[in-house]
Nucleic acid binder design. Structure first.
Lengths: 203, 203
DNA sequence: GCAAACTCCTAACTGTGTTAGGCGAAACGA
DNA sequence: TCGTTTCGCCTAACACAGTTAGGAGTTTGC
């Protein structure tokens, strides 16, 4: 049974190279900003010339697309790691979800820009990459259902509020905490509105 | 006393041309998106060649800068026009402020993108243009003070929430009302949090 | 009425994403 | 093992963006 699942070295190398390219792009985006990433710089980072990137991606937006999916996967890992400290109490849990998302977003502005803002000209995530985003969102929805929150309206509102705070923080006080400090209060407002008391746990 | 305030025809023509250019840029931004505006297209719209724009603006970002200031001036006019229907009741007034801002933003996505999102690569508004934004914000703050809301935290939170809803609406359901419908509820949450009752009027 | 300033032009440069086409090495079937 | 195909990279070059240089015709101002 050895040949059954023989390693496809070619495919392995190929996806390894894609990983390298995406990582290089992340590094550049982190250092110089998302829009300042040029294919020539990315190529140089991995020891190539710009046109060679087209062997692995069909366009620059295709690289953004890979980054988009990657970012949401990163978030799911990050969220999973933070799950150990997730409180039982419903209100505290919501604060937790919001804080985890907020911290993740603020830690890497270029990444958040790609994930949430439709800000890169002409870029729209592919079906495949979007799936990662949907999966993360669906996971969040499931958590919220455990706390008795199951309306789409409620989720929309929650996400919009948290994202609003993230965006304000990044746009007007990057590295600070002027809006970060308001997060718990915003979530409390939300919880109050839903009638979720400070003592309540999942029903 | 005729020469005292003699018209400066040159300056008039100059600022008239600037107006024309900015208007043309708005038109293109409206039709094709902010990032798709090219100097060659703008120039053609006003019967010029691209380099000639540099007679009136020192760079493309300088045009964006003029648009930024213009947008906030537009908002102040829009807000002033809506003032006739501003309710006395505090909670209703806050709903009004939020709705006016929301509708203005959603009516012209490219404009909102320029006003609120730091989304145009390398563009940061000048001191002068930023002043228009600050003026609008200060006006809003004054209104809120009349309703007993005077903390910077409160204003920050209010603006972040409304902007979060606007951004979500534009990004995920442009032209729809999935987040628009949540606006009043969000403001009620906020008002509840501040202890502003449905009956309360300015103190 | 003439010099200066102004406003527009064409030509061209730089830097970007992208395409065309080629070349050497690796992979693979006989 | 050998010939052929495929792969992964290259150089050259294109299209299009913002921008600069420099000039020509008009307007302005003493």
């Amino acid at each position: 049974m050895l040949g059954e699942t023989k390693r496809d070295r070619k495919a392995e190398r190929r996806s390894e190279t894609r990983r390298e390219i995406v990582d290089a792009a992340w590094r550049l985006a982190h250092d110089k900003g998302l829009a300042q990433v040029t294919l020539r710089d990315v190529a140089e980072s991995v020891g190539m010339r710009a046109p060679s990137l087209y062997t692995h991606f069909k366009s620059k937006n295709d690289i953004y697309d890979a980054m988009f999916g990657d970012a949401w996967n990163q978030y799911q890992e990050y969220e999973a790691a933070a799950r150990a400290s997730e409180p039982k109490n419903s209100r505290a849990a919501m604060r937790h979800y919001a804080r985890v998302y907020f911290d993740f977003a603020v830690a890497f502005p270029a990444r958040h820009q790609l994930m949430s803002l439709r800000t890169v000209p002409d870029f729209t995530p592919s079906e495949a990459a979007y799936a990662s985003s949907v999966a993360a969102m669906e996971h969040f929805a499931a958590r919220m259902r455990q706390h008795g929150v199951d309306g789409q309206d409620d989720l929309d509102l929650f996400v919009a509020i948290v994202d609003g705070l993230v965006t304000a923080q990044l746009a007007n006080d990057p590295g600070g905490e002027r809006w970060s400090r308001l997060l718990d209060r915003a979530i409390d407002m939300f919880a109050d509105n839903l009638g979720i008391t400070s003592e309540g746990s999942p029903p």
